[in-house]
Structure formats: structure tokens, C-alpha cells
Design a protein around this nucleic acid. Sequence first.
RNA 1: GGGAGCUUAGCUCAGUUGGUUUAGAGCGUCUGCCUUACAAGCAGAGGGUCGGGGGUUCGACUCCCUCAGCUCCCACCA
Length: 883
Amino acid sequence: MELSAKYNPSATEDKWYAYWLKHKFFHSEPDEREPYTIVIPPPNVTGILHMGHVLNNTLNDVLVRKARMDGKNACWVPGTDHASIATENKVVAKLKAEGIEKDDLTREEFLKYAWEWKEKHGGIILSQLRKLGASCDWDRTRFTMDSDLSEAVINTFVYFYRKGYIYRGIRMVNWDPVGHTAVSDEEVVHKDTVSKFYHLRYFISDGQGNPTGKYIIIATTRPETIMADAAVCINPEDERYHWLKGKKVLIPLINKEIPIIEDSYVEMGFGTGCLKVTPAHDVNDYEIGQRHGLPVIDIIDDHGRLNEKAQILVGEDRFEARRKIEGMLKDAGNLEKVEDYTSPVGYSERTNAVIEPRLSMQWFLKMDALAKDALESVESGNVKLIPDKYRNTYRHWMENVRDWCISRQLWWGQRIPAYYLPDGRFVVEPDAEAALEAARKIDPSITEADLRQDEDVLDTWFSSWLWPISVFDPQKPGHPDHKPNKDLAYYYPTNDLVTGPDILFFWVARMIMAGNEFMKDVPFHNVYLTGIVRDKLGRKMSKTLGNSPDPLDLIAKYGADAVRLGMLLCSSAGNDILYDEAQIEQGRNFCNKIWNAYRLIAGWNVDAQAQQPQSAAVAVKWFGYRLDQVLEQVEDHFSKFRISDALMTIYKCFWDDFCAWYLEAVKPAYGAGIDAATYEASRGYFEALLKMIHPVMPFITVELWQVLSDRKDGETIMLLRYPQTGKFDAGFISSFEMACEAVAGIRNIRQQKNISQKEALTLKVKTGFPVSTIPVIEKLANVSVETADSFGETASGVTFMVGTSEMFVPLSGMVNLEEETAKLEAVIAYQEKFLESVRKKLSNAKFVNSAPEKVVALERKKEADSLAKIDAAKASLKALKGE
RNA sequence: GGGAGCUUAGCUCAGUUGGUUUAGAGCGUCUGCCUUACAAGCAGAGGGUCGGGGGUUCGACUCCCUCAGCUCCCACCA
């Protein structure tokens, strides 16, 4: 069989993915094995794959594939999130492009469009995950708006309502004027924003509504809201303004009279010390207003435009109004000055619109009890956050949590199951029928037509917090007493969750709450928090910067395995990842390395007559031990979620140990056959390595495993047991390492002296050097090794050290006396200095007395080794000089 | 404003209860090689006073204090 010198991923990936699907290798059903469960962080149903998904899902897949090969019943549940606000925005935008306004549609009509969009574009991301090799149990794919999952959400709402945790009330909420909905505190991103600080003159009223000549100056960033002012507030301690007490001032432009009030909230040192109080449009002002019984004048509508209550600039967008009112104030003589000012401004995470604090009727879920339990779950270690540093952040959040605003003024999502009677009272029931029944208990004359369901839907996270439960048993949420079905009983709690720290509170904390509430158990035990993928300059990936590559392009160019390896190489938990295409190239190069190792092995012909050369026997023995040693390290890394360390350990084992040393040591001469023992051992090692690499690089390992022997249809490497570590002889391994150092020493000499590898040399080693590995030195360095007590006439030749062993290569006529002398003198100088520092330590009584014996013994060994090296170098020097 | 974290080779990072030589890896760099598995490769080499300063200790990259720089999270100062 002719094999190309390069691995071609595109020829193999789709083929094997189809094979896996055909045989349902990813599918899991409860059985007697130990389960290993991961639920996918459900991507937005309309989302497309980006680098963050690649990182996250590669990590998930590595964990799942490893667990599967560890003999566990691995189940990775995939699915998508309906992402109410994001999806609704996309649908609105799409309709707008077609000339259809959402406002012109009924709820039903809009939802029809939305579902059409979902059917058409939804789930694209799931098919993209297949390109990446994700081993999800696709038969279990769920969507947060599947009818039974939606039911679970409604039941949960009813449950918490009956428990007294859900209430309705007028609150100052974060209004998103682009999404036309309230958003939760967590969905508001504060960013320092450059704006203007307007200093406005508010004239004192003469009591008849006319301005006197006196005025006060008020500093504000939002002059467009002055029409909603209800008072001007000063600090009661502020002597500068005592003369104002009891007076009234006039709002510029509309000349409305408002009182001066006093409240200690006002900082005397900030701004002018006078605060305009606008209860409808600022959280603090609202609270001041409450304390002083001020009216709430809401002058901004759902779209962020001034309404008729503003009296002026009606219909203008708030920012346009700000711009215009500046001129109006100036013309009217009310503008004292304008300064540049930077202040934190809240933005909507979803739409990036500036949040408008606004009073409205919303639904809230009480958080204190839920948060207390969720905090305990993490504090007790029942849920481990990896890395651990997030525990502090988590605690801080949980201890300061506020009630969760769960209603959204949207149509896409689960509609709140509250039904209003004509008189405004309401009932909360799972469906309209039950609602009617309940309503009739209040008023027997109520008919179906009298009941009106709440227009709002629930926050997306109010469905995704049930995800680890509802994907298995949608009956359970909302019914803590319901007996879990077979799946839920088997798979819950899940094992690990891989997600980004940005949704630690949105999602992770709330899943823990829901788990505690409905399952009396946490939803997972380990939360692996990835970093954010950035470009190599450290910038966040974004569409506007254009610095975000399309993962599918990368997969097409380098192969899925290369992309996976590239992402993982630099990803320690919790650290941001600086993405660089060079890492993907490294992944591709590794694929080629594996591929070519296979080409070598596959090209060997067994010679039944051939005896195993000693060099091969030594290498076979060594690599067996080495593999066990590496596996021990790999398992240790995996157990601590040090995925990139595990990966690098395997990478080096394959590239350095296996290819550079093992294969070179056992490789027969060109055209010669290989003995059967070495051949079988090599194939076995190669197969073991394929298994070790498989969780990270599923495609190439499958491709090669399938052709390594005759495989039957339905066989697969992905269900084989991961290699197990065994006892290894560490002493033999270090003897082999000494041999490798000797080889490197000779290669070095060859390079310096320009001696071809083909030219055989003699290597003299002192008695005591481990003889077992000498055949490997002879083969790899092309030398014949002689052992001797002393090197005798060493006048022409080069010495070097391997550890404390002295080595000598006779090279008549090629030795530069000065060079060799200088080298040896440098060694002696270095060692003497080192020896001095060691002896200083050893002569310190405090050190010898208080340091552990082990450490002291080590220092003594250092001393002895250093002495040996100095002696050897001095002897060589003497010989060199012919003394 | 409050809190957390980071600062180790040109780059990205390890460094696991303070002690395996005078600190490691991958990538990049430099030198020599197209040696019949692999030039996307092979062989070799160079590169760091562990951010600055102080302290604790027989011993500090590791613990404490302090200064500087960076990052993230939380936050209603108009």
C-alpha cells in the first residue's frame, strides 16, 4: 500500500464520523456500569460555531471520550437554548428586512415566523459540532423549548409561586430599549463611557411660578430627563445651600415648579452638591422619591423616546433629545457650562443598548434561601470550581444576590402562566383549564374569554437552570416529590461541567439552586471554567475587529484533530487563551508525525528467521517501562483537570520517546526484515499510543487503528480500554536516559568535528557505566563501545561526561588541544564554584541540623558528584597535556 | 469605589504543602543536515539576576510586607 507522506484529514473525518453514528457508539442507555455524564452548555439555537465553542466542546469531548475508554457509561447530552432575547432580536431584524414590523403582527403570527426561523437555522451549530468530532449522544438532543421542557419551566414557575418565592411588583428595572424588554441585573454590563457633564441653572421661583434672579447650578449627565424632575435635593448639612431651604425652583424650559428637599444621600463634594431628583429614570432618585413622597413622572417610552409627558421634544430618541436640549438650554440661558466626563454606563449584554432604568411591573423570584444553599454546595466542596479562585467570586455574588427579575417583555419563550381576572386579580396555574377552574373559585361567573394570560415570557435562564434535570426527566422540575425516571435516576448528578466563567452566575449557580431544590442534590461535582479565547494580541474575538477565524475554515484547512490539539495546547483552566494559528499548525504537524510513524511500521516486513538484535530488545524493554511511567503522569494530570499537561505529556512521549528514540533504536536497516518479537512489540506500543491520543485526536487515531490490523465492521478504538499503567523499573529508565545522553554527546562531537554518521567511531566508557543499554548507544551513535578502568593513552581524543561517567572518543589527529583544554578548564571552574556553594551549605551547622535528612543527603551527593567530575576533568586535562 | 487574580526564556505557559544540582516545557530563534517514515522533518545550540524593594528562614520562584504594571469580577455617586 502506497501512503502519502502527509496525513489527509478531509479524506477521513466524515467517513469515520458516519461510521460512529451508524454504529451508535455515542449512544448511552442506563446499565450496570458506572455512568459518566456531561450536559452540553446549550448554545443559542440560532448560533454558529465560534472559537469559544471549539475550546469548550473539545474539552467536553476529551473528558467524555476518556471516560468512555475508562469503561464508564459515557453520556454527553447535546442541545440548544432558545435564547429568548437574542433569537427574538434576530427574527425581528429578519422580518424588518422583509418589510414586516413586529408591532404589526399578533403574538401568534410572530411566533409562527420565529418557529420557522428556528426550524431553518436552528441546530446548525449542532451539525458543526459533528465536524469537530464531538461524541454527543445525538438521540438525546434537546431544545429548551421542546414542549415537555417548556412544561417543566411552567411547572417550576407554579411551584415557586405556590411556595411563595415568586412575586409581582413595580420595581426599577433595567430596560433595554432595543430589545424592548426588562433584563436582569446580571445582563447589564457596566462600561466606562465618555459623556458630558452639563451644569444647568435652575432659577429660584418667586412662589408664583416666575423666575427670580437667583439660581442654583445642578450638574447632570442626562439633561433630557429634566422634565421628569420631581425635586432638587441638597444635603441637610450643606451650609452653602441653607438659604434654599423651603424654596422652590423652576425646571428650565418647561418652567415647572419643584421643591427643594434635603437628603443625606447627596454628597456635598460631588458635582455642585445639588442633585436633581428624577424618580422615574434613576434608581437612586427613585429611592429618594419614595422617602420624600415625590411623584414619578415617566417621560421615556419602550423605545427610549420621549413621550408626551416630557412636553417638549416629544417623540425624539433620548440621545437625540440630549443633543437638542443642550442647544435649547443654552439659548434659554440655563446652560452654565459643559465638561467632559467619564462615568460607568450600563449596557445590555444582548443588544448593547444603553440600559434605561425604568419603573415597571415585573415578576421576581426570591433568591435568598436558594442562594444560601447554592453557596453551601460550593463551600462544602460538593461542587468544585476549577480553578479554585472562582470560589471567592462565587461567594461574593451569592452573599449579595438580589431577587431575580424573571419576566421579559418578549414573545419568544415560555409565557408566564399567570391569568388575570377582569378585576385585575390573577391566578397562577400550569394551563388555561386549571386557571379557569381556579378563577371560578374566586368568581364563579368567570368564563374562558374573561381570563387574560400575562403577556410576558420567562427569562431564558429560567429554563436553562433546569437543563441537567429536564434533559433526562422533564416531569421532575416543579415536582420535587415526583419519582425520578430511569434516566434521571441513573445519570443525575452529572459529573463535570465545562463552561466559561462569564456564565458562572447566570447559569452555573442557578443550576445548583434548581438541583438542590428539585433533586436535593447538586447537578454536577466539578465545574471546569475555561478562559476566553482571544487573539494573539490579547484582544477579545469580535466580528467588528474581524479577528475571529471561522472554525470550519480551520478544520477544512488543517483538520479537526489539528484544531482540537491546537486549542488544547495552551489552555490551562481559567486562563484566557491567546489563539494563534501557529498552534493549529503544530497540531497538524503532530498529525503528520503520527501518520509517518505508522508509515514506517506499516512498511516493515517480518523476517521469521531474524533474531531480535540486542539494541531492539533493550529499546522494547525500556519503552514498555516508559509507557507505564508516562501513563501514571497522564492519569495524574487528568485527575486534576490539567488537560493541557496531560496532552503535552502524551505529545512528548509520542514524538520524543517513541519516534526519536524507540523507533530509531528498533528500526531495521533499509530493506532488511524485522524480527517478529520487535515487530509485535512495536505494533502494540503504537496501538497503545493511539489509544492515549484518541480522546484528543479522534479522527487520525481511528483512521490508523482501523488499518493497523484487519478490523471487523463495528469494531472501534473508541470503546477499547485506555491503557493502564503498570509497574515500571525506574532504574532501567534512567540507565536508558544515560545511554541517550551518551548518544547525544557523540552526535555533538560528530557535528563539531564534521564527522559523518556513517563513519564508525569508538567510544570508551569507564567500568561502572550501565552495560545493559550499550547496544542502543552502538546502534544510534554508530560506535563500538569499549569498557575500561582507565583510558590509558588519551592524548588524541575528546572526553565528555554523562552524569558522573566519563566518556572518551579517540580521534587521532582531529583534536584541537587548545579547545579541549579550554572546555575542560571551564568544567573544572564551574564545578569548583558549585562545590564551594554546596560545601558552604554543608558546613553550616544550622543547615545540617534543621534540614531534613533527605535534603542533607542530597547535598552530600552533590558534593561527591561534583568532586568526581572535577577529578575526571583534571585527569583528562593531564592526559591531554601528555603528562 | 470594593474584591479577586496575574507579573518566570523572544512568545504562550508549568513550577503541585519552602529543599532533586546554579529554575522547566512547547513554540519561535540560531547552526548543520533533502540520512529511503516524516524538511509540516532530523541533529545540535543559545536564551531567564523568576516585575522592583524589604522581611521571615539553615534555605524563598514558592511564605509575609511594600511599590509598580496588567487583567477580570462586583458596584446606584448625579
